[in-house]
Design a protein around this nucleic acid. Structure first.
Lengths: 188, 188
DNA sequence: TCCAGTTTTCTAGCACCGCTAGGATTGCTA
DNA sequence: TAGCAATCCTAGCGGTGCTAGAAAACTGGA
């Protein structure tokens, strides 16, 4: 029965190759360039094979990539936890900066990922927890959940507007410092 | 020569109808539903007519719609100027709430619109000016430009994350109030 | 009024997209 | 080795943005 095991392993490996190919292609040429035909060519199989792995089609592949992103973001934030609000904020921005297409898949596209619900995947809650962890100590009398949401929104807004060249490139560092100053200080 | 004038007027009117049809369709069914074929059917002309008005194709039509949006946003912010930071913040969110597709065209899609550059259209600078106007008085020693950019980013982040159901619906008002509290108060 | 000439508009088509039905091929089992 | 089951691919559907070239409409002069 080891042959069966090998076949199962091959299948999961191929599924992983699909997601990896999608991520690389998206990072190199944007998600518009990630077509099922090009993905099929990259993994050297025909198009329908993609649908045997991801019945949801392209959206499901993007969602799978996004899930990987949440896991990576969660560990990046956890590693920066000692740095407090400033450290986590920097880690968050650096993540979005290093993997812009992945960040888009996680937060801008792929709107069918269940956020803030019962069936929200653990890695997503974990990533969000990385923000809560550093905000909670400085929340004071304020609701930590609301404060975290706003802190997160500020970071997300900075990233998305900056990417679209909506903000002056010269003030990048200043902006981040300002967000940290307004949210990292203990409120009265 | 009045005939020539009439023809010019008809042409501009038809161009306006294209943008209006695109906006209505986008607001009703999303920008994905705005196809050149459906637009052509709505204005009761054939597809290539669209390209005689907007050589850039669909992107140019979206950009034209976005420009209208900036004009409307600018006047909405100007009208709320007396309300200070809180009033302008509320007006901004209400605008994004009332015309979500238009807001997307302005800030999420249509990335070829020239932001923060020399050839930035006046209406875009005007809309941004509506934010600066209320932030400047409370900037204190802080750089008003940077503070405005961060204030704007926070609002934008709130809106986009909220739209994707990334934030808990119950705390909408609280979040906005918190942004205003952190950015509307005069800094030391 | 009729006829060039110009402008405007439409028909038809290209290459591509996501996705899928049904047949061919492969590998496993007995 | 024969039959079965799982796997995979070919071919195609309806749709997309966009465009070349034919057709139609409008123009101004005889």
């Amino acid at each position: 029965m080891t042959q069966r095991q090998r076949r199962v392993r091959d299948r999961t490996e191929r599924g992983q190759r699909i997601v990896s190919a999608a991520r690389e292609l998206a990072e190199a040429e944007g998600w518009d360039a990630v077509t099922t035909r090009r993905l099929a060519a990259l993994i050297e199989y025909s198009q329908p094979v993609l649908y045997s792995h991801f019945p949801g089609g392209k959206d499901a592949i993007m969602a799978a990539a996004a899930l990987e992103g949440f896991a990576e973001l969660a560990s990046a934030l956890a590693a920066a936890r000692d740095g407090g609000v400033a450290g986590v904020a920097r880690a968050y921005v650096e993540f979005a900066d290093a993997k812009p297409a992945l960040y888009d898949a996680m937060f801008t596209l792929a709107s069918e990922l269940p956020f803030a619900q019962d069936d929200t995947p653990a890695v997503m809650q974990e990533a969000y927890g990385g923000l809560v962890a550093v905000i909670e100590p400085v929340a004071g009398t304020q609701d930590a959940g609301v404060l975290t949401e706003v802190f997160w929104s500020a970071l997300h807004g900075l990233i998305t507007l900056d990417r679209g060249h909506r903000l002056s490139p010269a003030h990048r560092a200043e902006r981040l410092a300002l967000v940290v100053a307004r949210f990292g200080a203990r409120a009265e």
